[in-house]
Write a protein that binds this DNA or RNA. Structure first.
Lengths: 220, 220
DNA sequence: CGGTTTATTGAAATGCGTCAACGATTGTGG
DNA sequence: CCACAATCGTTGACGCATTTCAATAAACCG
């Protein structure tokens, strides 16, 4: 039913399928990288450690997070193929990062990057670009946090859908992860999902496979 | 009424006094700028307009904001002397900006900035720096939005204090502005303030002059 | 000084969190 | 292949934090 792709051609472009599996193109910065494979729940760096690298997701899903004193987990970012993460202004990581699913990432030395950016305009331009996208992401997230519980979950699903082709979304993370990202409880997320389901805004293939029917965000 | 400002001396360094009046130093980017004076409530740009400049606060306070469909105001950023604002990734402004108090700002042409950044490493470095600080600000803001009402107001006052010397904070914006920034109602802000006052965490000189007694944030 | 905006306070409504129970899914070893 | 345990997800009842609505008080401005 959905968009057909030239099937036999060499896979230069982003592949068909869900976001978790697709593999982005290479850029000047990427060529300074080495690969690393991660299993589910594997820690990449810890809050407080020296920030020696930045990273790019090739396959899978990475989350960045911290804990409040009360023990509650704050999920700060969720990164999918093509996204860079681990960017820091200061010398330390201010959050931890771990793999949500088994993943492949690119590791890029920070020092090398900074020194190359000093001489090559293309690299410094790309750095600015990456930082700008991260800024945009952070602002979208703070917008998200101002919505009602139902709106937050709806917007979240909508945003996930935008990353894929087609209406179907594979939620690779747990309800608890979604809750920690949206600053809700897992219960509130579950309730919002059932409500959206009852309103036929979404439907479930399985607990983690959702079809998003609505075509635009319900709030702004 | 209070702080005397050295009136005759050349203003090279940041002046003593509250944040609203202090005047930051000049950088390579600043030298590409022209000045503009603003009266209270004056609009600088509107959401949806082409982003032709970036700006730096010299004197006063600028807010960036948008409105939700329900009419509620979202205050996205509050900028004080030394802060850059109006930075955009896309070609359009995605928020509006207006002066909270009468202010003086620097206006920097975006095109000129981008073209100079392509050749001068110092400029592109500063751009990255500015974007990085804005990123940091956005992340702090989304952290703020996850706290309880009392914690949000406490943290806000604390952050304001950090920008000044001394414990006394001049709140140049209305309670409603604070509420819109913290995603609370003006009533909740007022209640939180009276509570903090009752706990002697703060005390009032006037409605908009607060002495912050606590030495560190109450939440994280 | 009067009118207007801004700030505070109280009472009632509500949305989300908490606690507890249940149901579904996944993974493991027999 | 099934049984079991462990994890994950859903649902319900109740409580609390924040909003809403309304009234009053204080500050600001011509």
């Amino acid at each position: 039913m959905p968009n057909s792709k030239s099937p036999g051609s060499p896979p230069r472009r982003r592949e068909r399928g869900n976001a978790v599996l697709s593999k982005p193109d290479q850029t000047p910065v990427d060529r300074m990288s080495s690969e690393r494979l991660l299993s589910r729940r594997e820690l990449i760096y810890r809050k407080g450690q020296a920030a020696e690298n930045i990273y790019k997701v090739e396959i899978g899903c990475i989350k960045t997070f911290a804990h409040r004193r009360n023990g509650r987990c704050l999920l700060v970012g969720m990164y999918f193929p093509g996204d860079y993460f681990g960017l820091e202004i200061r010398k330390m990581h201010h959050v931890s990062a771990e793999a949500v699913t088994s993943s492949k990432i690119l590791v890029i030395g920070r020092k090398a990057l900074v020194s190359r950016a000093a001489t090559e305009a293309a690299v410094s331009k790309e750095m600015l670009d990456i930082t700008g996208r991260e800024l945009h992401r952070a602002m979208q997230h703070s917008l998200l946090l101002r919505l009602s519980a139902n709106e937050r979950v709806g917007q979240f699903l909508f945003d996930m859908k935008k990353r894929n082709r087609g209406k179907e979304v594979e939620l690779v993370m747990s309800r608890q992860d979604i809750a920690d990202y949206l600053n809700l409880t897992a219960e509130s997320v579950a309730r919002a999902l059932t409500q959206l389901n009852n309103q036929s805004a979404i439907s479930f293939r399985s607990h983690r496979r959702v079809v998003v029917h609505i075509r635009r965000p319900m709030a702004a």
